[in-house]
C-alpha cells in the first residue's frame, strides 16, 4: 500500500490524510491512554452482555447472570413501595374514615394516595380533579345525590349506583314518563315549565300552573313537595343551580320523557378497604365534602 504522508504548508506539520473540501486535518496525536479508555469501554460492554439480558438465541435469549428484567425490577420496586406504605395501610385498616381525617399524617397519606387512585379509576367519568362531565356529577360542588358526608361517600364508593352486580347498590328509577306513555306530551311540557319555575325561568306562566298538578301527582313522591329532592332516595334537588344533565327546556323535556339512568360501578368489588378509604378522604376534600 502506498503511503502518502503529507505536510501542511503553513504549519509544517503532518496531516492525518483526512480532507474535507480542501480542509485538511493536522495530526495532533491523542494520548494513548485515551485509546485504551476506548478499549476499556468495549470490554465493559462485554461485561454488560454477561450480566444483563443480551443476545437473542434461536428460541430464547441470553438471560444474564442475575436474570434481570424490567419486570422483576418493577416487582421489586413495587414491593419496596408496598413495604414503605405498610405501616400507613395498617393504621388505615384499623381506623374509621372519620378518624382518618383527624390524623394529619394519615390525612396527607390518603390525600396523596387518593389523588392517584382517583386519576386511575374515577377521572374517566368524573374528570381529573372531579370537575364532572354532563351526566357525571361534579364532586367539587355542594350538591350530592346520595350524600356528601364521609360515610355517605364511602358507602356510595362501596356499593356503586344502579350497579346490578351489587345487591346493596344505590338504586332508584325515574320512570320514562313520555316513552312509557305515563304522561301526555302536553303534561310533560307543563311540568317542565313548572320545574323551571323553581329557578324563576318559566316562560309560560299558565303552563307552569298546570304543571304544578302534574308534578304533585307524578314527581313529588321522590323529588319532594317543594322540589328540593330527597337524598335518601337519591332524588336530586330541582330548585338549585346545579343540573346533572342540563336545566334548559329541551334537556328537561328529554329527561322527563326518557328518564335518566346513570351508573357507577361498585368499587367495593374491585378495590380494597384501605384504597376506598383513601379515595373517600380525597373526594371529600375536593370542595363539596359535608
Amino acid at each position: 500500500m502506498p503511503t502518502n504522508v503529507e505536510k501542511d504548508q503553513v504549519s509544517g506539520r503532518e496531516t492525518t490524510g483526512h480532507e474535507w473540501d480542501g480542509i485538511k486535518e493536522l495530526n495532533t496525536p491523542l494520548p494513548s491512554w485515551w485509546v485504551y479508555v476506548f478499549w476499556v469501554t468495549i470490554i465493559w460492554s462485554v461485561g454488560y452482555w454477561v450480566v444483563y439480558p443480551s443476545w437473542p438465541t434461536a428460541t430464547d435469549y441470553l438471560k444474564g447472570t442475575f436474570g434481570t428484567t424490567n419486570r422483576t425490577q418493577l416487582h421489586e420496586t413495587m414491593a419496596n413501595v408496598a413495604a414503605e406504605r405498610a405501616p400507613y395501610m395498617e393504621r388505615l385498616a384499623a381506623l374509621d374514615v372519620s378518624e382518618v381525617v383527624n390524623d394529619p399524617e394519615l390525612l396527607n397519606f390518603s390525600m396523596a394516595g387518593g389523588k392517584a387512585i382517583f386519576a386511575d379509576n374515577c377521572a374517566p367519568c368524573h374528570g381529573t380533579g372531579g370537575a364532572g362531565n354532563p351526566g357525571f356529577p361534579s364532586l367539587q360542588d355542594d350538591a350530592w345525590l346520595w350524600g356528601g358526608s364521609l360515610d355517605a361517600i364511602n358507602e356510595t364508593l362501596h356499593v356503586g349506583i344502579r350497579w346490578d352486580a351489587n345487591e346493596d347498590t344505590r338504586l332508584n328509577d325515574m320512570p320514562a314518563f313520555g316513552r312509557d306513555g305515563l304522561l301526555e306530551r302536553e303534561d310533560i311540557s307543563d311540568v317542565v315549565q313548572f320545574v323551571m319555575g323553581y329557578s324563576n325561568r318559566a316562560t309560560d306562566g299558565d303552563a307552569a300552573q298546570r304543571g304544578a298538578i302534574v308534578f304533585e301527582e307524578n314527581c313529588a313522591a321522590c323529588h319532594g313537595d317543594n322540589g328540593k329532592g330527597i337524598q335518601e332516595l337519591g332524588a336530586p334537588n330541582l330548585t338549585d343551580a346545579i343540573w346533572l344533565y342540563g336545566g334548559d327546556q329541551a334537556t328537561l323535556t328529554d329527561t322527563v320523557t326518557n328518564s335518566r339512568r346513570g351508573v357507577m360501578p361498585a368499587w367495593g368489588d374491585r378495590l380494597d378497604e384501605e384504597t376506598i378509604k383513601m379515595l373517600t378522604v380525597y373526594v371529600h376534600s375536593l370542595g363539596g365534602g359535608q
Binding site: 503511503t3 503532518e14 490524510g17 480532507e19 495530526n27 494513548s32
Partner: peptide, 20 residues
Amino acid sequence: PTPNTIAADGEDDRDQPLYK
C-alpha cells in the same frame, strides 16, 4: 482515502504517530 500510517514495508514513516 488510503490509510497512510503504514508504509509499504509495514513501517510507520510518520514523524509523529497518531497516538502518543
